[in-house]
Design a protein around this nucleic acid. Sequence first.
DNA 1: CGCGCCTGGCTAGCGGAGTTAGCTTTTCGG
DNA 2: CCGAAAAGCTAACTCCGCTAGCCAGGCGCG
Lengths: 191, 191
Amino acid sequence: MPRAGLNQQTVVREAARLADEVGYQQLTLAALASRLGVALPSLYKHIRGADALSQKLSALATAELATELTTAAAGRAGGDALRAMADAYRSYARRHPGRYPTTQRVPDPSDPEHVEAGERAVGAIFAVLRGYGLTGDDAVDATRAVRSALHGFVALEAAGGFGLPREVDRSYHQMVAGLDVAFRSWPARGA
Amino acid sequence: MPRAGLNQQTVVREAARLADEVGYQQLTLAALASRLGVALPSLYKHIRGADALSQKLSALATAELATELTTAAAGRAGGDALRAMADAYRSYARRHPGRYPTTQRVPDPSDPEHVEAGERAVGAIFAVLRGYGLTGDDAVDATRAVRSALHGFVALEAAGGFGLPREVDRSYHQMVAGLDVAFRSWPARGA
DNA sequence: CGCGCCTGGCTAGCGGAGTTAGCTTTTCGG
DNA sequence: CCGAAAAGCTAACTCCGCTAGCCAGGCGCG
């Protein structure tokens, strides 16, 4: 019989697509193998196991997210940049419900691409905050606030934690506007 | 042989303790049964299965959290209440790392205690926001912002998503201060 | 006081997930 | 054209959740 011609790239990419379709929790090596037209143990020729797949998925998704955040913020500053980046963040999470959760995994130090992707993602946020004049410890705090707010919102939304679906966009924009006003007066409190 | 004398209460409570010790992901019916000195299938006399256990755990944890949030906010107003509530929130998540994740599960409509617990929890936030003069749609948006920020922060912290552990307290307080600032000017933008 | 029955234990056994071992066959380089 | 590395396979094991069905403890009622 002919070979399937897989490699780690194709396996991870297909896993990402599958995860988006069926949900991250339902992503299983068995389903992935059958999707790739291959017996389950064959996957082990390309990936060390389920946890390694999850890590590679994280590297992929983090890189994609970092790129979209960077693109969204490019050519904008201040509140404009913050809003564009926040919209890009939520958009990614909604378009890729299976990959998104993996972006919260802490980058594997032994995977340079993963580490780089993580740095690019927080770097994108950091850059936007420089537009508010935030640097050093203040910027670290503010970055954490941005990540917390955006991730928290997106996670609650995905979990169905909000009642009325109609008003969710509005709530998100209000929250981002809240971040904007908070950042305008950030150093005043921090000092 | 003597009976173990279990009931749903004791099973769920022990599950909560076990989850806090080993982590929610590692909470397994097998481990719970062995902890209770009982064979695994015996648990089914008290709980319908793993998902039902998770739901009951959610009801328990949500009720506990709601109580602690309400207590923290009692007798305070405005920024004081917000800070106290935020501290209580994070404190609960840290003291109960296994139960906390279950509080994000949407309450089961067929479990009145679960529903009531969920309402009490958002009610506690809602009440604090009334101290900022926020009501109606503005309060809904603001409640979502609070939940997003607090949950997001706590989730990132639990995942080890922050680099330096030393500064995390400071970042949290800054974020909560940011929420305070945002809520002071909330209606101005929302109208 | 005793007896019956509900209830809460048990053992056995299934299917699904991940993993490992070890075999076969394709395919490509020399 | 041949040999070896790589990529597929089957078989088999463990652990988990779950179901079925059996047995015994102990309370309620006659």
